[in-house]
Write a protein that binds this DNA or RNA. Structure first.
Lengths: 230, 230
DNA sequence: GGACACATGTAACGGGTTACATGATTTC
DNA sequence: GAAATCATGTAACCCGTTACATGTGTCC
């Protein structure tokens, strides 16, 4: 059944963008441009390229630098077919894994400092994206980027990652403010602040979902024994 | 060395929030609230709880519903220690994995329709978050949520996921507009539009990074043989 | 000529997924 | 009483990570 891992497809995709790639260049591309939305250990690349070679999807040229081996890969026609077959298949869902957020959700079990440390981590993650982004943006704007001919899609990527990182950062700031506000304040006060936060976030929802919530709220209020006017 | 997987810690954290949990309730909690930032297969939960029981971090009570077994877990003092030890450790970085975005980056290898299909997937991912969010928000606002006493942290989570989903959606819309604009337009026109997009995104960057880019740009322009005035 | 980044891998392990199987309960 | 859904698992497999090993150019 072949279980074409998206890793193989991603490497094939890179191979399709340029004539020749050494494994090192592939790992560089990985570290530089792909890691923020497609994170993989570099060792993975070495194995994946080997497998692509073995399956005839990439041709390999082995050379030597001193005593150390070096392999250069190129995509084959069969490899190009494979890429196109992949692109014709339905995309996989987006996956986010955020351990710091898990810590925030469970932060009642720890200290406020620990929660803030989690927020700091998120800010650091965001910062890392923006720092790399700034460098890459500079290259594309001056026209000196390696894949300058791909600037039209790379700009979309830059937009995505920037939005993502700025969202992370802004959220972390809001959350820190809230967490600091919580310390020493009574439960009902916290709850009120929390509800305000929920209502604020809800305000940005698309109209259909927003009305679904408000009507559900009205109904809940209506069925109460003591319906309190708003 | 124990390699405490964050999965075990997350389950322990849930166990710490309430007296008793059946495995099914844990998986429900997973599907409902955690899956968007800590995605795990449900089968994982069954194994993880078993391991927690075996290590003495959770106590287990086995019962039967008809002929089918059912296990209820509670956290032990040792388990609580473990959670606190985890919370005292440094958080792990945030990880995003977005295959549709990879497809957009490689969309020169496919058709515009395929790129739009990738954007649709991202919009669907965002929509899924918002839909669950709307329901949960309603519960917390009416005060009927199961973890109402956790509303102060759940509100932070709600804010996070809402921001994330809205960011995804808004980006997908922008990207689709761009991709539609690209079809049939010459390379230099695309490149110009792309640079505008980059500059727009860059405008929202924190000041220090922005100035780093602009000075790098100025330098690049200065070292050119034909320095073109802006 | 030692340190450090660049470059190329290998080996071992484990967390996590997919797919399957099956019992109980509700719905019509 | 069949279908659908809720509930509880098991088995097999593999993708991916961590950790290690080692060579090569360069900087001081």
């Amino acid at each position: 059944m072949a279980r074409t891992s998206t890793t193989a497809n991603a490497v094939l995709g890179l191979l399709a963008l340029r004539e020749e790639w050494s494994t090192w260049e592939l790992t560089k591309q990985l570290r530089r441009n792909l890691r923020f939305f497609w994170p993989r250990a570099e060792s993975r690349i070495y194995e994946e390229t080997r497998r692509l070679g073995a399956k005839g999807l990439a041709s390999t040229v082995r050379s030597f630098v001193g005593r150390r081996g070096r392999t250069v890969y190129s995509i084959t026609p069969a490899g190009l077919d494979e890429v196109r077959r992949w692109l014709a298949m339905p995309p996989k869902p987006t996956a986010l894994e955020c351990e710091p957020l898990l810590r925030v959700v469970l932060s009642d079990l720890g200290t406020a400092e620990q929660a803030v440390a989690a927020l700091d981590q998120i800010r650091a993650d965001a910062r890392a994206i923006l720092e790399v982004g700034a460098v890459v943006a500079g290259e594309y704007l001056t026209g000196s980027a390696e894949f300058q001919d791909q600037v039209h899609v790379r700009a979309l990527l830059f937009d995505f990652l920037s939005s993502f990182a700025l969202m992370l950062s802004a959220w972390a700031d809001r959350a820190e403010e809230r967490i600091n506000g919580y310390v020493g304040s009574p439960q009902d006060e916290r709850e009120e602040a929390a509800k305000v936060m929920i209502r604020n976030a809800l305000a940005a929802y698309p109209a259909d979902l927003k009305t679904a919530v408000t009507s559900a709220l009205a109904e809940a209020r209506g069925s109460e024994s003591s319906p309190e006017p708003d």
